[in-house]
Nucleic acid binder design. Structure first.
Lengths: 331, 331
DNA sequence: ACACGATAAGGGAACGTTCCCAATCGAAAC
DNA sequence: GTTTCGATTGGGAACGTTCCCTTATCGTGT
């Protein structure tokens, strides 16, 4: 049905080799040849077949972005979606195509198989089964991990220091004079959960504050759950003067609860989040939070996978991204 | 480097045909054959080459999701990202892979070309150059348009009636007794812009209200721009009692401005948005808005493109998705 | 006049599958 | 005992490119 390089060759009067050459390096071919070939191609509505090309070149220029199945929703996830956005823009600029996949299908009988030979490299965001990673690496596929670190030879990772970030948040609250601080901790991957939890405990110890475990709660990181826990804690007579929420979504639920109870933020209750997601500056009062440089994550991940694909030197190995405090009006 | 079907054939003692058969339809092969083949494959770390397979089958099981370049950011766009999420989940369930692409690269010298033969079908979200659509259709590629309608034979479209949706919003404001209503209209595609603008005008005419053009403004649909325009309008002595914002982002900027000026929502100033984006129920007070059934859009688009790929009958042609009013606390 | 290099173009193998067709073999049917 | 049929397997062409190698042509310098 669709026309092939042979049709163009016949119509233009040249050989398939010349046609191929013309499409690959137009400048390496005399002008008359070029125009004749392109003319014929246009007339036949011809377009080089990317699959056939990939077959001989052993390159597809496709990069996969796999989101841990623990992260649902995939595209809408407030932490990962800015990373995906940056990766997409970066990768497209270098003429790669981006393929996105929640990693569920990798566990399907044939899912893992199909993915492999169609990709030049794989980006994995979040916690994943090491078996999957090994599967890719056994095929000599370059892999870069995002917000996850595994000590495998030849594997590159980009992470953030969630302990340091959480300390920033806690220190800020302490500096503002808060002596009683509640914790609403999202149950992300155990690693992230504990890094932030430990920061909460450590900073308080260092400042001789006592942890009141009635105001420490782990929960699913969504607004309604945060709203519920925060509501019940905020009505307590000896409630904390501040809440450390381990992400912005939880912080927003907490603020909602406070506002509904008629409490003033930050005078009656201070709230701090983590992520500096888009929402944090949209709500009123605006949320004080920890900015994690997700743009750097996306950029480095994209550039690294491309460098690996092209066997170019890697600028930095296993790079840890910065976090900083963004003071707004909720503290 | 990587092992091929011939290696497996040799090691297992069967022919390449039998190996191929075993991978394609394990149940069509005697058990002893199956185990021997799979054993050999495992030993060799063999995995069928998706590219070679695609080459002979003339199918890749890849679907492209192209976001209009007018929509930036791509993944983070509050209207399109839920659609993308639904499309992704639906498509993956049917064992297709999803490629995402901002449509900029289609205009690159070779960009358009490369995309074509690697996809079984194409989803295009938002306004696009018809040339691009024709390019795909000339290659006999199924195309489905999302939130955009073009009268091309064989082209399927899913849209929302933005005029009707906007009328819902305006009628709600009128019912609440508002006689003076301002408009903050995002400059989306001209089509969407005018559908909503016309609804604004028409509903007021029908109710004998006078339009005060000092409070009508078109703007880029982002929070800070909305904040600025709303701020300057809200300080006016004879300001409107309500603002119709043509999406939630604008509404949020408007509410922010009102809150900063110490106005009470909805008593001093009512605000209504469109989209029912995630944010609308996170802010305080929660935003009254028009819900557009983006989930239905994503689902139908995904199912339709898959049906087209498989030459199955289409359940519904050119389907227009429902909108309804969601009353919250901003009106 | 001759050799030589640069420029232009073509022939054919190779990439790793699938799938059509044919071949073999044993058992069941007549 | 011959035929038929199903089950199992294999050979080879085809898919549409790229790329290595070769060939032809045409100056250009000596």
């Amino acid at each position: 049905m669709a026309s092939t390089i042979l049709d163009v060759a016949k119509l233009s009067g040249y050989s398939k080799t010349t046609v191929s050459r013309t499409f690959l390096n137009p400048e390496n071919v005399p002008e008359t040849t070029r125009t004749k070939v392109f003319e014929a191609a246009k007339k036949l509505n011809y377009t080089p077949n990317a699959i056939a090309r990939a077959m001989v070149r052993k390159r597809t220029d496709n990069i996969a972005f796999i989101l841990s199945k623990h992260q649902y929703p995939a595209v809408l996830n407030p932490f990962y979606s800015p990373i995906l956005e940056t990766v997409l823009q970066t990768v497209v600029k270098e003429n790669y195509s981006l393929f996105i996949s929640p990693d569920t299908d990798l566990s399907l009988p044939n899912g893992e198989i199909y993915l492999k030979n169609q990709m030049d490299g794989v980006l994995i965001a979040g916690k994943t089964n090491p078996k999957v990673i090994n599967g890719f690496m056994n095929q000599n596929l370059p892999v870069v991990l995002i917000n996850n670190k595994l000590d495998i030879d030849g594997l590159f990772c980009i992470t953030a220091d969630h302990y340091a970030g959480a300390r920033l948040a806690m220190n800020h609250l302490v500096e503002r004079g808060h002596r009683k601080i509640g914790l609403l901790a999202g149950n992300f991957s155990p690693q992230v959960f504990f890094e932030r939890y430990n920061a909460y405990i450590d900073v308080q110890r260092e400042n001789n504050l006592q942890v009141d475990y009635r105001f420490v709660q782990s929960l699913d990181p969504n607004v309604s759950e945060a709203f519920q826990y925060a509501s019940s804690m905020l009505v307590s007579k000896d409630r904390p003067s501040a809440f450390f929420c381990t992400n912005d979504t939880i912080a927003i639920g907490t603020m909602k609860a406070a506002i509904r109870l008629g409490l003033r933020i930050p005078d009656d209750i201070a709230v701090i989040g983590i992520d500096d997601s888009t929402m944090s500056s949209l709500i009123e009062p605006e949320l004080t939070t920890i900015h994690i440089d997700t743009q750097a994550m996306g950029l480095w991940a994209a550039e690294t996978i491309i460098a690996l694909i092209n066997h170019q030197p890697i600028t930095r190995e296993n790079f840890e991204v910065d976090s900083y405090l963004v003071v707004r009006n909720s503290t």
